[in-house]
Design a protein around this nucleic acid. Structure first.
Length: 183
DNA sequence: TCGACGATTGCC
DNA sequence: GCAATCGTCGAG
């Protein structure tokens, strides 16, 4: 069952860890469908968070963060990787969850395979600028479903965020959650 | 308008 | 250790 607006419209510090084990579904134009468990996430929270793109206020790139929860915030980094974020929280409060890792569920050919790193996630899902503002509560090509990998749920590592050293004390917030590798 | 640089990755 | 690669954003 697809997650709706209410799931995403909570504080990012609750939504982010809750996304672990949920299943991200990507349906391509040719009908192919990939289902992947979310295995790693990071939270970015408001204008005060010095690691968050919203720290300088609303800009052309980040403006979707101020819109309703459940919208997609994608942006190009290093000229080659599309980073997938899901907007959370109350409308008008810029928050988002960065999807940093996935594990294959369906089809069988990808079951158990891992994509660790946000750049690899974007590449696998074939994201591009057209996903900016996509609504995962209604989209026919990208959405999130209730978890079906509950056994992993209780093995979660809480860590500092990656690649945000410029953010000073905010870089040390443990706002990154990762499912511990099984077996 | 300009130039520095990034929520990264993979190769040397 | 560092290049790739380009849209974005703060500065001027």
């Amino acid at each position: 069952m697809r997650l709706g607006r209410d799931f995403f419209a909570r504080d990012v510090l609750r939504v982010a860890p809750d996304l672990l084990g949920k299943v991200l579904v990507r349906r391509f134009e040719d009908g192919r469908e990939l289902k992947l468990a979310i295995t790693e996430v990071e939270a970015y929270r408001g204008v005060g968070d010095q690691a968050c793109h919203a720290r300088f206020g609303k800009t052309g790139r980040n403006k979707v963060m101020w819109e309703r929860a459940g919208l997609v915030y994608v942006y190009l980094i290093y000229g080659m990787y599309w980073m997938l974020n899901l907007v959370t929280g109350k409308e008008g409060e810029p928050q988002a969850v960065l999807i940093r890792g996935l594990k294959g569920v369906v089809p069988k050919s990808i079951e158990g395979s891992r994509w660790d790193g946000p750049g690899k996630v974007g590449k696998l899902l074939e994201l591009d600028k057209s996903f900016y503002g996509e609504d995962v509560t209604t989209s026919c090509r990208l959405w999130v479903e209730e978890d079906n990998v509950k056994e992993d749920f209780f093995h979660i590592m809480v860590m500092e965020r990656v690649g945000v050293e410029y953010a000073g004390e905010w870089a040390r917030k443990k706002w990154r959650w990762k499912m511990k590798v099984q077996n």
